[in-house]
């Protein structure tokens, strides 16, 4: 019997972007309010898991042609790089700083270098979660 998942697939097309927007929001929210790289990465991974549930592994691989082990390695490199970058300014390893900048449309924003470290955490969490799920899903 051939099953028809049209309701799940149509709902996924709408819900996926809401989850991705929420994950980006909670990622940038993490400096002053609850959130951060870990939970943002988990929400992005769960959005891609929803895509895998509604469609199949081959299609997700065609949409997102990344090797997720490389994503994990890139995240670790970014995290190490923010630590090593503090040596350029003659301060101890992993020193963080922040400053206020004014942008044309957005106005005054506080930009912290902790965000760069958080990007590394985000990439590692997304890569590890999706590597685990893809590896388990592939052998039947």
């Amino acid at each position: 019997m051939k099953s028809n998942d049209v309701i799940l697939q149509t709902a996924t097309k709408v819900v996926l972007f809401i989850i991705l927007a929420f994950s980006v929001f909670i990622f940038f929210n993490g400096h002053h309010e609850p959130g951060g790289g870990f939970i943002g990465g988990l929400m992005t991974a769960s959005a891609i898991v929803l895509l895998m549930l509604a469609y199949d592994l081959e299609m997700v691989k065609r949409i997102l042609p990344f090797d997720f082990k490389v994503v994990t390695a890139a995240g670790l490199l970014v995290a190490i790089g923010t630590g090593l970058g503090s040596f350029l300014f003659g301060v101890p390893f992993l020193s963080q700083t922040f400053d206020y900048f004014t942008f044309p449309v957005l106005g005054e924003l506080e930009l912290a270098t902790a965000l760069l470290f958080d990007i590394g955490v985000y990439l590692v969490v997304v890569g590890v979660t999706l590597t685990i799920i893809q590896t388990i899903g592939e052998d039947q």
Partner: peptide, 17 residues
């Protein structure tokens, strides 16, 4: 969604639909 897909089809994530 994952539980109901497991109940209906036996697999949660299909390899090729």
């Amino acid at each position: 969604v994952a539980f109901s897909k497991f109940i209906e089809k036996g697999v949660v994530i299909e390899r090729k639909r």
